[in-house]
Structures are given as C-alpha cells and as structure tokens.
C-alpha cells in the first residue's frame, strides 16, 4: 500500500508570545505522518510520500517530515496565498499522478483552522472519507479501513472502501520525536519539486483574506478571596445565579 500524506507548514502554534515565528509541520499533519509511519512499520504500507505546497522556504518542514521517516517528498512550487479549495484541486492532480491507496492528512491546519481540504479532495476524487479519526485499522486484505471518528456526539465507527481520504484528530497518536539519525538520513532523501503546470492544473483561489485583526481582549476581571465572595458576585453583580 502506498500512502500520500499532504502536510502544511505553519507558524509554530506553541511559540511563546514575542518569540520569532518559526515554522513547523502543522501538528495535525504530523499526527498523519506518524500514523503513516506506524502503518508502514506494521508492514501494511510500503511507501509514504509526503506532499506540500509552497516556496523553497518550506523545505525545512519537508526535511522534518523526511526525518520522521517519510520515504520521499514532493513540493509543489507555488507561493500564492491559496485557499482550501485551490489546495484540494492541486492535490487532486497530485493524487491522480501518485495513485495511492490512502491519503492521510490532518483535519485542519492550526493557522487557518478551515478544516476543509481533506473533505474537498475526497469530493473531487469521488473517494470515501473518514474525518477526525482517532483510530484506523485495515480490513479484508487492505481493501477497506475501519475508522473511529471523534464527533460532537462521541465516538463513531465507520468502514470506508479504499482508496480513501482519512483526516486525523488529536488523539490518534503521539508523533515521534525527530531523532538525529532521522535527520541525517533525511539529508539523503530526495525532494522532488513540481509546478502546477507540470501537474496540469490551473487554479485560482476563490477566497481572499482582505485583512486580519486581533480580537478585542477580554478585560481581566476581579480577584475574589473566598467562595462566599464569589457567590455574592455571581448573584448580585453578574446576576447569573
């Protein structure tokens, strides 16, 4: 089985305030990479291909993916501000070229928080999808996958025919730490660079971010010294009890 893992380079969400915004592999995508590695380590996959879209500056995150253990990586050279639908259309062309049995990716990128690409890609390809998964197992000689999904109402189990798109939630696994041997091996692995033209896709993003702003800060309230004082505030000042 061949697995394609699309991943995105995002500003480190755990960088402290004021810290220089270093880029990292989107944490949800990192979980997808980890799961692909585990599937390969169980002997159920033979090749893991990492794919990202961006300018050469994202090569550092590509090397992180390779250092984790992805077999080879592709970068689709495009530095435009793409929207999820544009990304999905580019990935469709890539998936058609690579013909994997499984596409594993994060459920959302933590910068944009859109949570769209995997589902859109599934729709474009006409493939089954399993979103927000916390568990995956292969059935019937890897022709189907049983997935546990994290939904608002609790856990849900579905089976999807392969090939399929699967998006990962937080609790699927704990990604491994990139080790020094992994880092050194990654230096020897190829990064293939493709353009949208080479893939035969022309897409224009249909959504544009006009501006961004910080939300108004919630003012800090008051400290209370005791449960009694808190009760008084809740009843008399806030009037919620």
């Amino acid at each position: 089985m061949k697995i394609v893992v699309p991943f995105k380079s995002v500003p480190d969400p755990y960088a402290g305030p004021g810290a220089a915004a270093k880029s990292v592999v989107n944490p949800f995508d990192e979980i997808a990479i980890e799961e692909a590695l585990r599937i390969r380590e169980r002997g159920e996959a033979t090749e893991i291909v990492g794919v990202t879209i961006g300018p050469a500056t994202v090569d550092e995150q590509i090397r992180s993916a390779l250092a984790m253990g992805v077999d080879r990586a592709l970068r689709i050279d495009d530095s435009r501000a793409l929207d999820p639908y544009a990304v999905a259309r580019i990935l469709r062309a890539l998936v058609a070229k690579e013909a994997p049995q499984l596409v594993l990716m994060g459920k959302q990128a933590v910068d944009d928080d859109s949570n769209q690409v995997g589902q859109m890609l599934a729709g474009l390809l006409g493939w089954p999808q399993a979103t927000f998964i916390s568990k995956i197992e292969f059935l019937e000689n890897k022709t189907r996958a049983q997935c546990t999904r994290e939904t608002d109402g609790g856990l849900e189990v579905i089976v999807v025919n392969l090939p399929a798109i699967v998006t990962t939630d937080l609790r699927l696994n704990e990604p491994r730490y990139v080790s020094l041997p992994g880092l050194m091996k990654a230096r020897k692995k190829p990064i293939e660079v493709l353009t949208c033209e080479q893939l035969g896709v022309t897409v224009q993003p249909l959504t544009t971010t006009l501006s961004t702003a910080r939300p108004p800060k919630r003012a800090a309230g008051t400290r209370v010294e005791s449960v009694e004082e808190l009760m008084v505030k809740l009843k008399q000042e806030a009037k919620v009890l």
Partner: peptide, 8 residues
C-alpha cells in the same frame, strides 16, 4: 486572529 474574507 480575526480574518475578513472575501469570496469570488
């Protein structure tokens, strides 16, 4: 962050 987004 809050983003203002336009659609084509």
């Amino acid at each position: 962050m809050l983003a203002t987004v336009k659609i084509e």
